[in-house]
Amino acid sequence: TSIVNVSSSLNVRSSASTSSKVIGSLSGNTKVTIVGEEGAFYKIEYKGSHGYVAKEYI
């Protein structure tokens, strides 16, 4: 489990790309479970499925 480190919110994306669809967002200090990594993104558990967040904010 890791913590989201942002002051406002962090986009959760459908794939490991800044141009991919935003499927949701997480607020600062939210706990997330990392299940993998791809480039500059972590794959996380998100709403019963998976999403991707930028590593620099975790």
Rank of each mutant, 00 (worst) to 15 (best):
K21S: 13
E45D: 08
Y57I: 06
S9I: 13
V32A: 04
T33E: 07
S8P: 09
L10D: 03
K55L: 03
K21Q: 11
V6Q: 08
I58L: 11
S14R: 08
Y42S: 01
K47S: 07
V12E: 01
V53A: 03
V53C: 02
V6Y: 05
S25H: 14
L10M: 08
E45C: 12
S17R: 05
S15M: 07
L26N: 00
V53K: 00
G28C: 13
I44K: 00
V35L: 14
K31F: 13
S2R: 08
E56I: 14
Y46N: 01
F41R: 00
S8T: 14
S49H: 09
S20R: 02
Y46H: 04
Y52K: 00
G48D: 08
R13L: 15
S19E: 13
K47I: 05
K55N: 02
Y57F: 12
K31C: 13
S19V: 08
Y42C: 03
G48I: 03
N11S: 13
I44S: 02
K47Y: 08
S7C: 15
N11E: 15
N29C: 14
S25D: 06
N11G: 07
N29A: 08
T18R: 10
S25L: 13
I23H: 02
E38R: 05
T30Y: 07
G51N: 02
A54E: 15
A40T: 08
I3T: 11
F41P: 00
L26Q: 02
Y46D: 00
L10F: 11
I23C: 05
I44E: 00
K31A: 11
T33P: 03
Y57N: 10
A16V: 04
A40E: 13
S8K: 12
V53P: 01
I23A: 02
V6W: 06
I34S: 01
T33I: 12
E38Y: 08
G24K: 02
S15L: 07
Y46P: 00
K43I: 13
G28V: 13
Y42H: 02
T30E: 11
V53Y: 02
Y42T: 01
G36C: 08
G39N: 06
I23M: 07
I44D: 00
V12M: 03
A40F: 07
H50G: 04
A54S: 09
S14V: 13
N5Y: 09
A16D: 02
G24V: 03
L26E: 01
N11V: 15
V22A: 05
Y57G: 14
V4L: 10
T1L: 12
S27Q: 14
E38L: 06
G51E: 01
K21C: 11
I23Q: 02
K47C: 14
N5A: 10
S9L: 11
G36L: 04
V22K: 05
S25T: 15
I58Y: 06
I44R: 00
S20A: 14
K21H: 10
T1F: 07
A54K: 13
I58P: 04
K55Q: 05
Y42N: 01
E37D: 06
S20G: 13
V22M: 05
S9D: 11
S8E: 12
K47G: 12
S27A: 14
V12N: 00
G48K: 06
V32F: 08
S9V: 14
E56N: 07
S9N: 11
G39R: 04
I58V: 10
S20E: 03
S19D: 14
R13H: 15
S17D: 12
F41K: 00
A54T: 07
N29Q: 10
H50N: 06
S7G: 13
K43S: 03
R13C: 11
F41E: 01
K47V: 05
E45N: 08
T18D: 13
L26P: 00
G48E: 07
R13D: 02
S25K: 14
E38S: 07
S49M: 12
V35D: 02
V4F: 06
E56A: 11
S9R: 14
T1M: 12
G51Q: 01
V35Q: 05
S19I: 08
K31R: 13
S9T: 13
S20F: 06
V35K: 05
T18P: 14
V22H: 04
T1P: 12
H50I: 14
K55W: 03
T33N: 10
T33V: 14
A40D: 14
N5T: 14
V4P: 07
F41Q: 01
F41L: 01
E37R: 05
T18L: 15
R13G: 04
T30C: 11
E38A: 07
S2H: 15
A40M: 11
S17N: 10
T1I: 13
V35H: 04
F41I: 01
A40K: 10
V32N: 01
V12C: 03
N5R: 06
Y46I: 03
S8I: 13
Y52R: 00
V12K: 00
I3N: 07
N29F: 13
G51T: 01
E45K: 09
E45A: 09
Y42M: 04
T1C: 15
G48N: 09
I34C: 04
L26C: 03
G36I: 02
K55C: 03
S15T: 10
K43G: 01
S2M: 15
K43P: 00
E56M: 11
I3D: 06
I34Q: 01
A16N: 04
F41A: 02
G51P: 00
V32I: 12
S49T: 12
G39H: 05
Y42V: 05
S14E: 15
H50P: 05
S7A: 11
T18H: 15
I3Q: 09
V12L: 03
Y42D: 01
V32E: 00
T1K: 06
S9P: 13
N29I: 08
S7F: 09
T18Y: 15
Y57L: 10
T18G: 10
S15K: 10
I34L: 05
Y46R: 00
S49Q: 10
N5P: 08
V22R: 04
G24N: 02
F41W: 13
A40V: 07
V4C: 14
Y46E: 01
S27W: 08
E45V: 12
I3K: 07
F41H: 03
S27G: 10
I3C: 15
Y46V: 02
V12G: 00
G36P: 00
L10A: 14
V4I: 11
I3H: 10
K47P: 02
E38D: 09
G28P: 15
E37Q: 09
S15R: 09
A40S: 11
G48C: 07
Y52W: 11
A16W: 04
G36K: 04
T30A: 12
G39D: 06
K21I: 10
Y42P: 00
V53I: 13
V32D: 00
I3G: 10
S49I: 11
V6D: 07
K43C: 09
S27R: 13
N5S: 12
S49V: 10
S19C: 12
T18N: 14
G36F: 03
S19L: 10
V32G: 01
E38G: 03
S17A: 07
K47L: 12
G39C: 05
G28W: 12
K31P: 12
G24W: 05
E56W: 08
V12A: 01
S2K: 08
Y46A: 00
T1H: 14
H50S: 06
A54P: 15
K43V: 10
K47W: 06
S2Y: 11
G24Q: 02
S49D: 08
E45R: 07
V12D: 02
V4D: 06
R13P: 02
S49N: 09
T33R: 09
N11P: 15
T33C: 10
S19F: 09
Y46Q: 00
T30H: 08
G39Y: 04
A54D: 10
K43Q: 06
L10I: 15
S7H: 12
S20K: 02
E56Y: 09
E56G: 07
V4Y: 06
V22C: 08
G28A: 15
V12T: 01
G36A: 09
T33Y: 09
G28E: 11
T18K: 12
S15H: 14
A40I: 09
V12Y: 01
Y52H: 01
V4Q: 08
L10E: 04
V32P: 04
S8G: 15
Y52L: 01
G51H: 01
H50E: 06
E56K: 12
S15P: 01
H50F: 15
K47H: 10
T33G: 05
I23E: 02
I34G: 00
